[in-house]
Nucleic acid binder design. Sequence first.
RNA 1: GGGCGGGUACCGAAGUGGUUAAACGGGGCUGACUGUAGAUCAGCUGGCUUUACGCCUACAGGGGUUCGAAUCCCUUCCCGCCCA
Length: 395
Amino acid sequence: MTTADELLRGVVHCENRERLSERLERGDSLRIKFGIDPSAPDIHLGHLVPMRLLRRWQLRGHLPVLVIGDFTARIGDPTGRSVTRPQLTVDEVEANAQTYLDQLFCVIDRGQAEVRRQSEWYDGFDLVAVLRLANTATVAQLLQRGDFDQRMRSEQPIGVHELFYPLLQGYDSVAIRADVELGGSDQLFNLMRGREVQAAYGQPPQDIVTVPLLEGLDGEKKMSKSLGNAVAVADRPTSQFGQLMSLPDPLITRYLSLLTDISENDLARTESELQQGLLNPRDAKADLAQQLVSMLHDPAQANSAREEFFRVHRDRDLPSEIPEVAVSMQNRWDIRELLLAAGLAKSKGEAARLVQGSAVQLAGERVSDWRQPVALHPGAVLQVGNRRVVRLIPS
RNA sequence: GGGCGGGUACCGAAGUGGUUAAACGGGGCUGACUGUAGAUCAGCUGGCUUUACGCCUACAGGGGUUCGAAUCCCUUCCCGCCCA
């Protein structure tokens, strides 16, 4: 495999591939731009896809230039949104950026990267500069972007400031003299715009590389925290494991190929075994989850997360660690009050409904009627369903 | 500035005077089953209580009409589109 093949494996779009391959083969050291959106500090598995590729480039001697979008974060990237995001304060953005970088540097080498902030060049941007930048594109060109076009047609609002987003992001490439820009495939328009902006400022246009967007746990929409279908990098191992086990079966191989170092052969084998029913999807998913948790934390924690999961969900055992809640040890508890006190229900009405739906167990016994008072013994386990479990201790 | 269309529960979306705490879908929770928090099927999904078709809160805010309003009127605020 050539260097270019290796560095472009799995990419969705590459522009201009010939030129880029040539430069890679020649061994040029390239400045590869990677934009960071500090409006969302929580990195999830979806972010890992470009980051892993960035790491491969870094290992080949190219320099990641991390551009913190501290300025555009205050605008809100309209990508895929029908509603404008709330604008963030400078402090919030800075705190988010720091969190983001800390997590990013778990994947790429901090020493071999450059970190830049948009505010370096935008804080001094005056109106003349703004108009010059605006003059690099026409409204029609900007409206070609898919989501703008869609919003126009469905009579949704488009803020003028949103129109500037691609231009500002494009100018970042001018400011840092990017040779290549890496991003998710939803960024294609913005990245392409960067080429035009650079050309307008007399720079050679950057090459661009886009990677696939990872689908979230719902199996449909792209992974995003606000959609609630994301696995956060910083989340606890047991929680990550469980979330990954809820992944729809068809996505198993997708995750394997985008998030692990699995070889083409092994991937093909797993795929066909799943198809022929030789491999239980549950086990394939457990292996995947274990691998990913190992990567995000460490193998030992991944292993115990796996054991814990099977213990609770397959074998229907109690979790090994049960949070304790102190309550008074009276003999005639109203089960609704008890559920409320234990934090397992938000209201008495909800508590009554849970009991009615036979979800509640106290000391291993199913509670069938909320009208019946219950007696309590120290250390009794109260649970709602399989996952919400609490041990009651005397207060 | 003019015209038109909107603001309903976590989200989307019905409902244009009364059995509406509000259809339906999504999401969430739970149960059965099992291959897992996956699939499928089922139930639940405002609060409180003496669990009762009892009370309270709720259909952007305020005021009014009415025995009775998410539904009618007035007014304020917010949003969208079109024309200038």
